[in-house]
């Protein structure tokens, strides 16, 4: 057997040197548009996102004839667009975070075990990976929505399903290299159980990969969640998820463009900055993932 080099010394500048390229602007945008609203919606929202106010219907945004009372305008029921976006951030964050968590836990566990035990289980898991990668997540989303009705749970399942295979494939590939490493053999000789080797010795060696991959998936998760809400098969009304807000404004684009425009802008800015931070993290922690 060819020896496998684990400690492949890739030329790497220290984290400190790398930090000079840290994407400050994307992080700032992400905090302002996404993170802070998600956690502090109640403090920074100007109005109740659910209560209609018919006297304030269809106010234009500030600089387009509106007032600071409704900075991004109001919808046809007089609800403040800004406050609705701010309150929606939490749900976007929750769905993408939990969905990715499901994908990470399922994918990592299966990938770890498959790569470690090999044999029929490995073949079985890789088969599942192939099928899962071959199945557009949208089909599952349609089927789930039809069968059990759309809910927070169904969206999380769809996101987890869409992502787990990437983690399983990547983790397995790394475990295949690691399982023959010296430290694994020595730990075995020292009497460690397989369980201990997998989760105490091998898992820490693949965490970088998992973190980078998870960050790169955030954009995909947010986009998937937004598409489902837009179609009405995401978290049901009246929750102001961002996709739903865009869909609310679809029929009013000719006259009241701001209803659909600003929620979409929030999605775009969030995904854009997450992707830029993800790229930076990948280049810093795990440049090999460039191919993924």
């Amino acid at each position: 057997m060819a020896e496998v080099q684990i400690s492949a010394q890739r030329p790497r500048r220290s984290l400190w040197q790398r930090s000079r390229d840290f994407p400050i602007l994307p992080l700032a945008v992400l905090l302002i548009v996404f993170i802070i609203p998600a956690f502090f919606a109640h403090w920074i929202a100007l109005h109740d996102p659910y209560v209609p106010n018919l006297r304030a219907r269809l106010q234009p945004p500030i600089f387009f004839g509106g007032t600071w009372e409704y900075p991004l305008g109001t919808d046809r029921l007089g609800r403040d667009i800004y406050s609705r976006i701010v309150h929606g951030a939490w749900y976007v964050l929750a769905v993408s975070f939990i969905g990715i968590l499901v994908g990470v836990v399922v994918g990592t566990t299966l990938g770890l075990i498959a790569g470690y035990v090999r044999g029929w289980f490995d073949g079985f898991v890789m088969r599942l990976v192939d099928i899962s990668l071959a199945l557009p997540a949208m089909l599952l989303a349609l089927a789930l929505a039809a069968a059990m009705g759309a809910s927070f749970l169904s969206v999380v399942i769809v996101v987890g399903f869409a992502l787990w295979a990437y983690f399983a494939r990547q983790v397995r590939a790394e475990v295949l290299l690691l399982r023959n490493a010296d430290f694994v053999a020595r730990s075995r000789v020292a009497g460690s159980s397989h369980f201990r080797i997998l989760f105490r010795h091998i898992l820490p060696n693949v965490t970088n990969t998992i973190v980078v991959l998870a960050t790169l998936q955030v954009g995909i998760a947010i986009m998937l969640d937004a598409s489902l809400s837009f179609l009405g098969i995401g978290i049901p009304r009246p929750t102001p998820t961002w996709g739903l807000l865009v869909s609310d404004g679809r029929d009013f684009i000719a006259t009241d463009w701001w209803i659909a425009f600003f929620p979409g802008l929030a999605i775009m800015l969030t995904v854009l900055s997450v992707n830029m931070i993800g790229d930076w993290l990948r280049d810093t922690l795990d440049p090999r993932l460039r191919q993924v």
Partner: peptide, 16 residues
């Protein structure tokens, strides 16, 4: 930019 823009939103902006 293209990978960060939700397609349904782009569709609406194009109509606009």
């Amino acid at each position: 930019l293209g990978q960060s823009m939700p397609n349904f939103w782009l569709g609406i902006v194009l109509i606009w």
